[in-house]
Design a protein around this nucleic acid. Structure first.
Length: 756
DNA sequence: TAACAAGACCCCGAG
DNA sequence: GGTCTTGTTA
């Protein structure tokens, strides 16, 4: 493309921001103002004006954002050019650079990326071997402390030199913290492994310690673009500064009003003080919102104005005025969920919307449960985001651990995970001996396990044989992966590691789902190879796959059947998305704003979070709160969120309370119990009915359970109810399982599904 | 060593 | 209430 015709799709400010090329620029892009569009057109503009694609670095926070942007750019300049861009997440781009220069830092290019579970398990092993009190030294706390330090580029040695740090350790009663931090860094290096934070820290170290490498990349990247700048942490900000030193062409796009990730290290000051860091910086403000109605935009503005720490801007919409934001008040979380589903039905009756035009946003994942129940009861299709990621599932992590160890024998966490899985008689005692010996002799655990007989440890011949069988299996995998592609290697590993045999040994529903996941994983390897082959790469090996798999998340691939469904997700995960109808549930004190947020700056972040939530809505926005809520095992009463009062009332329509379906009477009747159970008919009446022993029918999860009901248990499989007894919480069912015989189950706990 | 009971913990979460 | 981890026991 020679003409920049595509620029005609932009408004005046957007065009200006795209065309400007003199110095660094900061583009403050209000919600819905076409941020991604400006970023993609900026890159396309650079490319069409003759800049080499490999001299452009574009950084995002999620794979999804990078992928979408790449696709859009490919649409303008063609796939071939687009694929030559340095475009991806901070972590993937930096890991690519680090693999090139790993030797400089004492790693090999095959280094493993530890995920947070690996780091945590390593830290736990330190706490244990150092005999520290795990009530004081909590692995999770230590992990986040280390992460904060790394985000601020504080190495163990600079930590040691700072008396303030030592003092804090004593105040927190953790004098051993420093030695744990130091040992953690050392052990990662010995294991040829980096955690997620290391991908940033080590990139910084690479550039600060090796001037020729730094120069090379400073020279190479003549243009650096960063999406969502408000989400950058200190280390990312510094690396961007280093990389842009020579050309000074940094394009930072972001919105201070949408900074909601301080809890994971994001520093809003990076964007607020950006102009000081880049003195000739030109500021652009994209203030027209193309997404939402006037009422929604102005309501959001009136809310965010209550924050003091912000870059001033006036977001406006030229869409129609639209409906007022509705406020729904309910008596309990249960009622709230019911109100939301009936409101959805009501909107659907009067308008031509699909289920996919609706989203329910909430502050915490735990709120999804009641909502989910209501959607089921009302037969509304829904999908929930959040929960255990595919890659965190045990069976998947086990397979990946075998892959990791086959490629990097020093990967201690992978070895720890699988040395006795599937069970092969290498128990805790043997493992302790191995680890101790390895660390004393400064050898890898694998090496010690390989020739256990040669070291002065008391491991009997039988166990030695088991150990050498295990290491031999891994060595076989290693030589196999060098000659075969990733798909064949993973297939071999799944079969020969014994994993597939282990999950096939018993036909439980759990195992069935595990098998499906393993199958799914194998498909993903296949697709990975396929995609790489299409991009012109040959001989895609297990190492190639593994280099990327640690950075994968399951946000990326949405399945076809998930399309026309209502979306349930946290406000955080809704960032960047939009829906015609948005419900914001649980707008209560102690929940939104969260009880954890007390300081003014924390409250400002909560307010920004609600701002993000409201600005997801294109046409209708419904705010909802409940007066009581079942939380942490008990009913809690709370007041409406202070943020509702922050919104100018002229944009709000307060619903009459009569809209709740299980009104005040029903609530009061059970207020001594749990309003959670104020379900219609069966549940309440039957559960609290006196003298109902010897019954043949009880209520269960809103349906009836009687003698003869067919049920499915998560562990025991299929069975038939043969007896019922007990009251309330003590209520038990006797179930005859096809495979497991007769069991007594407490209905309160039993994971039963009625199947007939 | 697996199975089960008791105890802890519970905000948001990319890579 | 639910889930995950840890401790205990047969």
């Amino acid at each position: 493309m020679t003409e920049n015709n595509f620029l005609n799709n932009l408004n005046a400010t957007q065009q200006e921001a795209v065309r400007y090329n003199e110095s660094a620029s900061l583009i403050i892009a209000g919600a819905g103002s076409g941020k991604t569009r400006v970023l993609t057109y900026k890159i396309a503009y650079l490319l069409t004006s003759g800049i080499d694609p490999h001299r452009i670095l574009a950084l995002t926070f999620t794979n999804k954002a990078a992928k979408e942007m790449k696709e859009r750019i490919a649409g303008i300049v063609g796939e071939k050019t687009a694929s030559q861009l340095w475009m991806g997440t901070f972590h993937s781009i930096f890991s690519r650079i680090l693999r090139q220069h790993a030797e400089c830092l004492g790693f090999t290019s095959q280094f493993t990326i530890y995920d947070s579970a690996d780091s945590k398990s390593l830290l736990k092993s330190f706490i244990k071997t150092k005999n520290l009190d795990d009530k004081i030294y909590k692995a999770g706390n230590i992990q986040s402390k280390i992460s904060i330090l790394k985000n601020h580029l504080v190495s163990p040695s600079s930590y040691a030199q700072d008396p303030e740090c030592q003092r804090n350790d004593y105040l927190q009663k953790m004098p051993e913290f420093y030695s744990i931090y130091k040992q953690y860094v050392e052990r990662c290096k010995q294991s040829n492994a980096m955690d997620f934070d290391d991908l940033l820290v080590n990139t910084y170290l690479l550039f600060s310690s090796f001037p020729d490498i730094r120069n090379r990349y400073q020279e190479l990247f003549s243009f650096i673009l960063i999406d969502e700048y408000q989400d950058t942490n200190y280390s990312q900000h510094i690396i961007v500064k280093i990389l842009s030193e020579k050309h000074q062409k940094v394009y930072a796009v972001g919105d201070d009003a949408q900074s909601i990730y301080s809890f994971r290290g994001a520093n809003i000051d990076n964007i607020l003080t950006f102009q000081k860091d880049f003195p000739n910086c030109k500021l652009f403000k994209l203030e027209q919102n193309y997404r939402s109605t006037k009422n929604i935009v102005e309501a959001a503005n009136s809310l965010i104005e209550k924050n003091s720490n912000r870059i001033h801007k006036t977001i406006f919409s030229e869409k129609n005025r639209g409906n007022l934001l509705e406020v729904i008040s309910s008596y309990s979380d249960y009622d709230e969920a019911t109100s939301i589903t009936s409101k959805i039905r009501q909107i659907l009756r009067n308008n031509e919307y699909n289920y996919s035009d609706f989203a329910i946003l909430y502050r915490t994942n735990s709120q999804s449960r009641v909502l989910e129940d209501a959607f089921r009861r009302n037969n509304i299709p829904y999908k929930i985001y959040g929960g255990i990621s595919f890659y965190q599932r045990k069976e998947i992590k086990d397979i990946i651990a075998y892959c990791r160890l086959s490629i990097n024998r020093n990967d201690e966490e992978a070895l720890r995970r699988i040395i006795n899985y599937p069970a092969r008689g290498i128990g805790e005692t043997t493992q302790n001996k191995l680890f101790l010996t390895a660390h004393t002799l400064n050898k890898s655990v694998f090496e010690v396990a390989e020739n256990a007989g040669e070291f002065d440890i008391k491991i009997n011949n039988g166990t030695q044989k088991k150990l050498s069988d295990f290491t031999q299996t891994i060595k076989d995998f290693t030589s196999f992966y060098k000659k075969n592609d990733a798909y064949a290697s993973v297939e071999k590993i799944i079969k020969e590691s014994g994993i597939i045999a282990d999950i096939s040994s018993e036909d439980t529903p759990e195992n069935l789902s595990k098998k499906e996941n393993v199958e799914e994983f194998l498909n993903m390897v296949y697709e990975f190879c396929d995609r790489k082959a299409n991009e012109g790469e040959e001989n895609i090996s297990l190492a190639d796959f593994l280099a990327e798999v640690a950075l994968f998340t399951d946000q990326d691939n949405e399945k076809e059947e998930e399309r026309n469904k209502v979306t349930l997700m946290t406000v955080h995960s809704a960032k960047g998305l939009e829906f015609k109808n948005v419900f914001i549930a649980g707008l209560e004190e102690q929940l939104f704003p969260s009880a954890m947020c007390q300081t003014p700056s924390e409250l400002e972040e909560e307010r920004r979070l609600l701002y993000v939530a409201i600005t997801r809505a294109k046409e209708n926005c419904i705010l909802s709160y409940a007066k009581s809520r079942f939380r942490n095992g008990q009913t809690q009463f709370s007041n409406p969120s202070r943020f509702i009062k922050d919104i100018d009332p002229r944009y709000l329509h307060q619903q009459q309370e009569s809209n709740t379906f299980y009104g005040k009477e029903s609530f009061n009747a059970f207020s001594g119990f749990k309003p959670h159970f104020s379900k219609p008919e069966s549940a309440v009446t039957k559960t609290y009915e006196p003298n109902n022993t010897g019954k043949t029918t009880v209520s269960f999860n809103g349906s009836e359970l009687h003698i003869g009901t067919k049920v499915l248990h998560a562990v025991f499989g299929n069975g038939v109810v043969v007896g019922l007894e007990g009251e309330g919480d003590e209520q038990k069912a006797k179930v005859d399982f096809q495979l497991k015989g007769t069991k007594q189950l407490l209905l309160k706990y039993a994971k039963l599904t009625i199947t007939g």
